[in-house]
Design a protein around this nucleic acid. Structure first.
Lengths: 154, 154
DNA sequence: CTGCAAGTTGAAGTAAACTTGAGGTCAAGC
DNA sequence: GCTTGACCTCAAGTTTACTTCAACTTGCAG
């Protein structure tokens, strides 16, 4: 315990809930930065806690670390980001969240329609055809998704 | 083109939107089955199309292939599944979808509260503390999620 | 000064869901 | 009968977001 304004990696890990290894990883991909002690140990500014919080939350919203890095790149470098700065970034999540929710609701409603008939038939059933490309939800393949529906016979 | 009731892997790929390599993969993990021609090529029953449709849709809902395999295992083996069979499985997704939507809405609402203040401060802000473990949404780490919040000072 | 928890590095492993590649076979039209 | 596109297998590669391991070094309490 100290009065030192800088935090050790263990302290940041403890407070952010991100493991030390995760913090090192974040640093390796350019999401956060640190200074070093003479003995080569990392020391973090307090503002890093907020930055990590942003990263975790953005991640929960579904952004990839790449996208998060891009977002963070818009923060001013010459000064510690203000609440306004963070607020601006967070606001950008809103449409994304709305889209995700809408997509799931669409899926749910279509499912309701289909449950009655137990169809799930390709091409004939709405469920099988994404409908919009805002998919990219949950794990699974993002590669070919809604490419060619092709003809229908089953 | 033929009158053959069995489909080649290419046909199934074309109609289902899942690449041939994906279908082989599904087979390798026991999600679908096929018979073979004398020349060792796969031939699929038409019902496979429905099965694949189920897999893709369940996947979109966020189920892992493991879970999907478990669900499919409850289908009768001795006969081609009826609409009722599929309907039963689909109905089981509903609570899951509802939970996913609720989780996202919770996140959005909390975000709305937080946007005004640009807080995102750890522990002090609801956004940083998951609240329920129904997370498992979108990509990213499912490992440590909401483990120890720890104390708060920033 | 000593001991030991905490920190360091780089490489390798993990998980899910597939894709790609190499090397070889099959089937159908001409 | 031959060419060509579709298929086969098996191993290895891909992506994202980390964790784990081994082998070592620091830093602080006693």
């Amino acid at each position: 315990m100290s009065t030192d304004p800088l935090l050790t990696i263990g302290e940041v890990a403890e407070r952010s809930g991100v493991a030390s290894s995760g913090l090192r990883y974040y640093e390796s991909v350019g999401l956060i930065a640190s200074t070093r002690t003479t003995g080569n140990q990392r020391r973090y500014a307090r503002s890093t806690l907020r930055r990590v919080a942003f990263i975790r939350t953005a991640s929960r919203v579904g952004l990839t670390l790449d996208e998060i890095r891009d977002a963070l790149a818009t923060l001013p470098e010459e000064r510690t980001p203000t609440k306004k700065d963070w607020s601006r970034l967070s606001r950008a999540w809103r449409p994304r969240l709305d889209a995700q929710i809408a997509e799931l609701e669409r899926l749910r409603d279509t499912l309701d329609e289909c449950i009655g008939c137990g169809c799930l038939s390709l091409n004939r059933c709405k469920l099988s055809n994404p409908g919009d490309r805002a998919a990219k939800l949950g794990p699974g393949p993002r590669f070919l998704e809604g490419d060619r529906p092709a003809d229908a016979t089953d």
